Simulated assay, not measured.
Amino acid sequence: MTTISANGVALGVESFGDQDAPLVLLAGGTTLLSWPDALCEHLAAGGRRVVRYDLRDSGESTTADPQAPAYTLRDLAADAAALAGTLGEGPAHLAGIGVGGMVAQVAALDHPDTFSALTLVGTRPVAPGPPDDDLPDHDQAAMNRLFARPMPDWTDREAVAEFAAASAEILGDDPVAARATAARIWDRTPGTAPPIQLANHVGMVFSRLDCAPRWRERLPGIGVPTLVVHGRRDRFFPVGNGEALAREIPGARLLVLKEAATAVPDTAACEVAEAMLTLG
């Protein structure tokens, strides 16, 4: 792992595969550990250079004030484009997961010559907050359980890992995998102050981010091969959100993971990687 300067900020990155192979750039949601190791390894074995990276205010990327971010969603999209340009000479395959999928959509729209393919995982075509009337909102029962719990002691690595495991169980993800990932995220988080921990573990910085203007109406303008991946059991962004993306992006393929929720489980990593590799 290292940091790379792009668009005036430092972005934490980790690379897999041959440095001269075609680039697949994975935007975190919010940290690079949102992308499982197994998926990165499968993509690298398929002849790709894989780079996963932390969004601002997470992991090893520039951290300022997650409670009052002085940047917008379009700045994060510009980060992706700048990073792709720094890493390679040709257009890259861009993938985003969760809120990183929102970054990826805007990046593909605002910087069309920078990207050759697009993968959107567990995301939706509108910003955080109330969705459009035709899109399913968060499962309310799950959200009530998720946010009714007290926050952990953010200075206690094990307490944070256990909190993540319990959150994963509510959302339908694997609590064992979530516990291990949360411990790794804690190790990479630059401080134990609650706002910083919330930005890294819960992505709360996105609730304060300026995401205007809307981009959903521009989705028919995406002109690169696109894969939409969504968990059938996703309670945070229910699968109807992925179905809408696949309908509205010309020629997009929808891959629904029957046993997945918000995360890509290791058991689906090969299937997702193979689908991504068909895009180029």
Rank of each mutant, 00 (worst) to 15 (best):
R149I: 00
D133T: 13
P131D: 07
A127S: 15
L109F: 10
A127P: 07
S116H: 09
G129F: 01
D132E: 15
A142V: 06
E162S: 03
G122K: 10
D153Q: 15
R145D: 14
N144Q: 14
L120Q: 01
A148M: 06
G122Q: 15
G129Y: 03
A117Q: 12
D132L: 15
R149D: 02
P130K: 13
D153H: 14
T114R: 15
G122E: 15
L135F: 08
R145T: 09
D110Q: 12
L118W: 04
N144G: 13
R124V: 11
E162T: 11
G122V: 12
D113Y: 04
V160Y: 08
V126D: 15
Q105R: 14
A104T: 06
P136A: 00
A108K: 00
G101L: 12
T119Q: 02
V103Q: 01
N144C: 01
A148C: 04
A108R: 02
A104C: 09
L146V: 07
M151K: 10
V126Q: 12
L146A: 09
R145M: 06
D134A: 14
M102W: 02
V103C: 08
P125H: 00
P128C: 05
R145P: 00
A108M: 10
A127R: 05
F115Q: 04
E158R: 11
A141C: 01
R149M: 00
D133R: 14
